[in-house]
């Protein structure tokens, strides 16, 4: 197997691997990521507990913040970039996210319709 490792690696990166940087730059990347993540987390917790913002917007805001924070983690901790060396990693991620979206979205959508047409047993009981 190891005779296969002479292939050039400079045009393909493992997931989580960074382009060659000095240690200082790498640490800085993590610090920036941590700061951004903490900021977004704090915002989420603040919004959830406050009545300063319009209440119906809170769920949307929380989800947007969560997605943003996942993005921060992906970029600063998992080093997923859009460079050509990362194509395979990003494509795999995109496929995974598509499936997650289909499963969660599909389930919620289907079950909402099912429940509307045929409520679960205990709801029928309550109606009677």
């Amino acid at each position: 197997m190891s005779d296969q490792s002479h292939a050039p690696t400079d045009h393909d990166l493992a997931p989580g691997e960074e382009e060659q940087h000095s240690v200082g730059t790498r640490i800085l990347g993590y610090v920036v990521g941590l700061a951004l993540a903490l900021l977004l987390t704090a915002t989420s917790f603040f919004i959830a507990g406050t009545d300063l913002v319009w209440q119906p917007s809170i769920p949307v805001a929380l989800i947007v913040l969560a997605i943003a924070q996942m993005g921060v983690h992906l970029v600063f901790f998992l080093h997923i970039t859009t460079g050509p060396d990362n194509t395979n990693n990003v494509l795999a991620l995109a496929f995974g996210l598509l499936v997650v979206f289909l499963v969660v979205g599909g389930t919620v959508w289907i079950m909402a319709h099912l429940n509307a047409n045929m409520p679960p047993m205990d709801q029928i009981m309550r109606m009677q």
Partner: peptide, 27 residues
């Protein structure tokens, strides 16, 4: 260019595993 290095192969395989794990969480 030919087969990738072991480091890339291992990490990529694990990356695929993580995606499958996240699909499980999504359920």
């Amino acid at each position: 260019p030919g087969p990738a290095s072991k480091r890339i192969v291992t990490a990529y395989g694990f990356w695929i595993f993580l995606l499958s794990d996240i699909v499980m969480f999504s359920c």
